[in-house]
Nucleic acid binder design. Structure first.
Lengths: 342, 342
DNA sequence: TTGTAGGCGTTATCAG
DNA sequence: CTGATAACGCCTACAA
């Protein structure tokens, strides 16, 4: 079915030189004359030569492929992180393998196995929401595959780069903003506390409350997988409490969108009767009526950084002199109509 | 940096048999005794053997990798098509390489080159919006890599599978629905006519109009890249016409969302003063207020079919007996508040 | 049923 | 600066 490919031998024969010279010329080796390099490149182009990465990978033990594992590609945050990663990777001649865990730990484990078998050169991951064991990542590291975490990171493995935002501060900014607007009973729809970032967001929320002398009430807090179904259900729960919360800080934007939808369905005016703030923008956040106030994350930048750190680690001779300090980026509060009282 | 891997030789040595026997045992070759197979598998597991796909790919000329090229992964339609493809692929032992063209022809061309070089076994693609030349896909086919198109397909290349929905009928259903609701001046925000599916959607729109004796007015039609910016800008243009259109049929859902946002910003009541129907659902379509009437596509099903057809073609000895009939799936009109007059 | 030997396309090593 | 030769890890005639 597949066609025969031209190999370096074909080039060598044509020029009556050895295949090693061709190989070296193609790889821009230092001690090959410019003349032969030029000749080799010309003939390579003429013949339509394309290097067989399988063969070179076999001997160099490199695949020039890195992989990304994210919960789902159709969330704005992950999609733009991927875009950032792709940019850095392709600039450096790497191909990117995108995988979705669909927020399932089991699937994440399987994916890692596949990646190890496929000899990827490195892995960039944001954890599934129910991942609490990390042996699969340790296995990858033991197989010599560097791992970089971003967003939902794993602190249990020390010798990896981690790219995060200041989740604590973001949540604090969001809550403080609601308090400043005069909201008094601010509820929180958070992510499962297994993930560190959602613990941080909860902590930031608490700090925001306490700064305005608002009591922290565990009854006003819910934890979930942060999808739209959860968002709708938990908003309903919260809004049936008596007295009713007058604002909700959501740990992501899908739940914020669901909360908004629920409120409008039930004639609860946003923001007058219910202030809403989300975390992490979706494409539509600014298009909704009212538009949703959100904490914006530098998602593409995070992706770029993660890729840079990963390539750095791949190129390193040993991991001894790596500085695995966690890298923390800043978030930004984007105030929109869903939280703004006159 | 990377650790040494255990090879079939290690297994062979341990069992004092030859490496070929090990290879055959691992591949479940017919003429190997059950006893040795079991022994080999046991030792393989003990030693933590993982087959090197690079090496076997080098000789079998297969990578067990297929690739998807879509305009963008963060659109619901593409994300769920990808999910469908992933399911079928992983069931059959294939790894999936997801690539984004970002709706740029040039990038699509480069991606194909990368994929050819990386020896993927097959490609599933939905075209970038400005793709009008197809030599890059012919190049892939000439390199022996089967290509399957879905959604935005290429009719210029005959010998490929194509998975589409009945775009004409979907657009017709949408327009008819608006006409039935009593809308008289129905505008259309369409995709660039370079893509066949957008020509079909325009044609379906025309049929819907003519069936209700509504005149087709070129002035009520706009063509664009169907992103949110375009949607906002063109909605503005359309709504400044005198007399104003009283409904818009959008060729995708991002533009429908933008149109809704624009209308609400300008106190134009939806659906009373402006009916809106979109094509292809986004996650939020049903959560918006009013929720957006849409044409639903069987996106995951399309992905599965595309993957099945691709694997079929990969496994085929020759392409002579392939039946490249275009496969057309049905769409469904989901009526919601954005178009429903009492 | 199993072993031997050769080769897939590239790169590394060691000579020259 | 260039060439011969041996790897890389696996698969597959062919032979036994």
């Amino acid at each position: 079915m597949k066609k025969k490919k031209v190999s370096i031998y074909d080039i060598a024969n044509r020029l009556e030189i050895s295949s090693s010279t061709v190989s070296r010329a193609l790889n821009d080796h230092a001690r090959i004359s410019e003349k032969t390099k030029l000749a080799v490149r010309r003939v390579a182009k003429e013949l339509g030569f394309e290097k067989n990465h399988l063969a070179s990978g076999l001997i160099t033990n490199k695949s020039f492929t890195i992989s990304i594992i994210v919960p789902a590609v159709n969330r704005n945050f992950f999609a733009s992180a991927i875009t950032g990663i792709e940019k850095v990777a392709s600039e450096n001649g790497y191909t990117v393998l995108i995988c979705q865990s669909h927020d399932q730990y089991e699937r994440e484990v399987k994916l890692i196995d596949t990646l190890i078998i496929n000899r990827v050169d490195g892995i960039i991951a944001s954890l599934a929401i129910n991942t609490e064991e990390f042996d699969h990542f340790r296995k990858a590291k033991n197989a010599g595959i560097p791992v970089v975490f971003f967003d939902r990171v794993c602190h249990e493995i020390e010798d990896t780069f981690k790219i995060v935002v200041n989740d604590f501060n973001g949540a604090y900014l969001a809550t403080r903003h609601l308090a400043e607007q005069g909201f008094k009973r601010i509820a929180h729809i958070g992510g499962y506390q297994s993930q560190n970032i959602f613990r941080e967001r909860l902590a930031g929320y608490k700090k925001g409350l306490s700064e305005f002398n608002l009591p922290f009430d565990e009854g006003l807090v819910r934890y979930c997988a942060l999808n739209t179904d959860d968002g709708t259900k938990l908003t309903e729960e919260l809004l049936q409490l008596k007295p009713r919360p007058d604002a909700i800080f959501c740990a992501n934007n899908l739940t914020a969108i669901s909360a908004l939808a629920y409120a409008m369905d039930h004639n609860i005016k946003v923001p007058e009767a219910l202030g809403i703030v989300g975390f992490s923008e979706e494409t539509v956040s600014s298009l909704l009526k009212p538009a949703i106030t959100s904490i914006r994350q530098p998602s593409e930048q995070m992706g770029k950084l993660a890729a840079q750190k990963l390539l750095e680690e791949i190129d390193a001779e040993s991991s001894d002199n790596m500085d695995y300090t966690e890298i923390e980026l800043r978030t930004e509060l984007i105030v929109r109509a869903s939280s703004k009282l006159e």
